[in-house]
């Protein structure tokens, strides 16, 4: 039983299966856990921002990297979850059940929209390359709608949608009188990211995951084996939307605020970029890329550097030119080759 779980976690669906890798992984997790102790509350909360984007990136890796379906509009589910949480929790201020209701409501709302949309797309067998555009149109539609919701006619209960200025004063999650802020919010994000990562690895190493990967490799053959690929694609799409919603829910905790630009074209491109730069065929690679790209971008902007966008653009072009399968994935492969060779030499 135990070994079965270990196999699910440690299986080959993601880079890093060796003992050395897992020791390194645990050390890194410990370092992350110790990080807030050495730094100011600001640094911790900033790092929490990098962390909270990871589920969105993981959703992208799951859907695009493992299932071969690209969504250019996953930020829509991020936004729907964030807004729904804001509406429910904002209407039930002072009631601790309200916050949990907000979380559940946010997840349900985005699951529902994703489910309907994915049904519409996959059961109609829409061409693969049109899906990114369809999802993009959906998220632009959402942005256009939310942008004009200033004013009282767009009040849900006591909460104003707020139009382009965004929804403000969204309450933070709390247990009893303990509010997740600063350091504690960092740990909340870290734990959620770890759970998401391990759970996804287990999922992808399971039979279901293997079928999903088979769909990516050869949908026709997989279907001939008798698997209903539409249902599986549907499920993967909804799962990745749930991951995006988790990011959305954490985001509104972090800033107590959400705006329509969160579901706009610029935001929509980001998860796709994280996945491409790291290497979309690996969960860990996407995690690393999400962390590093967010950090670089913030560091450049904090310096007031006008060249930030030029630098990021150049980095993207170079990465895609020289690391077509992602910088982290190809580095890992290179390390893998190197260690294999030295192992082989040792045994000879």
């Amino acid at each position: 039983m135990n070994s079965k779980i270990l196999h699910l976690i440690g299986g080959g669906a993601d880079i890093g299966t060796s003992r050395t890798f897992w020791i390194g992984f645990i050390i890194v997790v410990i370092l992350f856990a110790l990080y807030p102790i050495q730094v100011s509350e600001f640094r911790a909360s900033n790092a929490a921002y990098y962390l909270l984007n990871i589920p969105l990136g993981l959703g992208m890796a799951l859907l695009w990297g493992y299932c071969g379906v690209l969504s250019f509009g996953h930020v829509a589910y991020f936004g729907i979850a964030g807004y729904t949480y804001g509406i429910i929790a904002g209407n039930m201020v002072g009631n601790s059940f309200g916050l949990i209701a907000g979380v559940i409501g946010g997840l349900l709302a985005s699951t529902l929209v994703a489910g309907v949309f994915a049904y519409f797309v996959f059961y109609a067998r829409v061409r693969e390359w049109i899906i990114p555009i369809l999802t993009l149109v959906l998220t632009i539609l959402l942005e256009t709608f939310l942008g004009q919701t200033a004013g009282y006619q767009w009040r849900v209960g006591s909460v104003l949608l707020g139009g382009y200025n965004g929804m403000t004063g969204i309450p933070s999650i709390q247990i009893g009188s303990f509010v997740f802020m600063g350091y504690s919010f960092y740990y909340l994000c870290l734990i959620i990211v770890l759970v998401c990562y391990v759970a996804l690895r287990m999922l992808l190493n399971s039979n279901f995951g293997q079928v999903v990967i088979a769909i990516r490799e050869d949908p026709l053959r997989t279907e001939m084996f008798g698997y209903d690929i539409r249902a599986r694609k549907w499920l993967v799409f909804v799962l990745s939307a749930v991951l995006a919603s988790i990011s959305g829910l954490l985001y509104v905790q972090w800033g107590n605020y959400i705006t329509p630009s969160q579901v706009g074209l610029l935001s929509a491109a980001l998860p796709v970029i994280w996945a491409s730069v790291g290497g979309r065929s690996s969960l860990l690679a996407v995690i690393i890329a999400t962390l590093i790209l967010n950090w670089v971008n913030f560091t450049l902007s904090a310096q007031g550097n006008q060249y930030a966008m030029v630098i990021i653009g150049t980095a993207l072009v170079i990465t895609m030119l020289f690391f077509p399968r992602g910088i982290v994935v190809m580095t890992a492969e290179w390390i893998g080759k190197f260690t294999n060779r030295s192992n082989n030499e040792a045994t000879h």
Partner: peptide, 20 residues
């Protein structure tokens, strides 16, 4: 610093300027 016309960066920068 540069807000990059991006609300998230604005929030991060505000925290940095105030806290750090």
């Amino acid at each position: 610093p540069d807000g990059q016309s991006n609300n998230n960066i604005w929030q991060q920068l505000t925290r940095k300027l105030i806290q750090e």
